[in-house]
Amino acid sequence: MQTFSAEEMTALTKAVIHHMDEWKISGEDMLVILGLGEEVRPRHLQQYRQGDKSFPQTPEMMDRIDHIVGIADALRTTFPFSSQMRVMWLSKPHRRFQRRDPLAVMLAEGVDGLMRVRIEVDCAYGYHISEAMRINQSQKANQDAD
């Protein structure tokens, strides 16, 4: 896991909060998506927005941040001229999510939900994941054959 300086982590925190603000996500939902504990309240998000606090550098938080930034980048690539379309995509039921919207998947499934949404919106990331899984299965099959 890459370690960030305090300044880098503050900038990363502000960027992630900014992405979720652009997506029109409520404070309560932000806390769930970020996996922040019950001791953090929606009113505390202002401290993160202003750079007074930054997210902890735990492996799970860094995974969540990676997926949120990846989703934001993919949405910006898919809908470069319309922030409204990005918000709409996140809130529109999708057939690959059993008619649930991507935001509901992220809220219900945590890191796995973030990854599923990212795979759906970012084809390059989806290819990378499927290729890694294929290689892993191939290596496992070779080990079983030995």
Rank of each mutant, 00 (worst) to 15 (best):
I25M: 07
V16N: 13
H94E: 09
G70Q: 02
F4L: 13
Q46Y: 12
V111I: 14
D29N: 12
E60L: 14
A15S: 15
G126P: 01
Q84D: 09
V121H: 04
K14R: 15
C123I: 07
S5I: 05
D52K: 14
K140A: 14
E120F: 00
Y127Q: 14
M30I: 07
Q2R: 12
Y48M: 15
Q98G: 12
A124H: 00
D101Y: 03
P93Y: 06
M88T: 13
F55G: 04
E109Q: 15
I17A: 10
H19I: 11
N136I: 11
G51W: 03
S91P: 00
M61P: 03
M62L: 15
A74L: 05
G35P: 02
A6Q: 13
Q2P: 03
R134H: 05
K53H: 13
D66T: 07
A124C: 05
V69W: 00
K140M: 09
L34P: 00
Y125W: 03
L103K: 08
G37H: 02
N136P: 02
E109R: 14
H67Y: 11
Q143L: 11
H67Q: 10
S138C: 06
E109M: 14
L114P: 00
H44M: 09
L36I: 05
V105G: 05
H18M: 10
Q143R: 10
F81L: 15
K92C: 11
A104M: 13
E120Y: 00
M1K: 10
I33Q: 01
M88G: 04
M133V: 11
V121N: 01
G51L: 07
D73N: 03
L31N: 08
F81G: 14
E8R: 09
H94D: 09
K140N: 10
G37M: 01
M9T: 05
E22T: 06
P93D: 09
R99H: 15
R116F: 04
Q2C: 10
H18P: 01
K24R: 13
R96S: 13
D144E: 07
G126Y: 03
S130Q: 14
A11M: 10
R116D: 13
F4D: 07
Q139V: 07
T58R: 14
Q47H: 03
A6G: 10
M88W: 10
G113N: 04
T3E: 09
D63N: 13
A124T: 05
L34T: 03
F55N: 01
I71H: 00
F55I: 05
D73P: 00
Q84L: 11
L114F: 08
T77E: 06
G113V: 03
D29I: 03
Q47S: 13
H44Y: 13
E7P: 03
K140Q: 12
Q139T: 05
H94W: 02
T58C: 08
R64G: 06
G126M: 04
T78Y: 00
S26M: 11
P102D: 08
M88R: 11
H94Y: 05
D73Q: 02
A72C: 08
R64S: 13
H128Y: 12
S5W: 04
H19N: 14
G35W: 01
V40H: 12
T13K: 04
D21K: 07
R96H: 05
